[in-house]
Amino acid sequence: MTPKAFYLSSPESTWTHRIVTAKHEIGLLSDAEWQIVDAELRRRRAEYEVAEKAGKTADLVDYSRVKIPLH
């Protein structure tokens, strides 16, 4: 964490994302909500790895613009 930003890590990817707070709407998730998110992010990672082995990553959905339903 820095005064204006922090780094997010997730099971979806093998890198971190720098989040500048002044440019984001930020919400904290409860444990229950995170369980849903965590499962979905791991599913996406598995989907990517399968596609990577098949050489079909270009066919994947761009999940950066897809919200995960929490309820």
């Binding site: 997730s10 994302h17 709407e25 930020i26 904290l28 613009r65």
Partner: peptide, 27 residues
């Protein structure tokens, strides 16, 4: 943040949304 003050700590489960680029990040 854009939506007001937030209390962040190491290990917090976070949803971050960038309205300008419409990018969603969770982690």
């Amino acid at each position: 943040a854009i939506n007001g003050g937030i209390n962040i700590y190491r290990g917090a489960f976070v949803h971050a949304f960038a309205p300008t680029t419409i990018l969603t990040t969770m982690g």
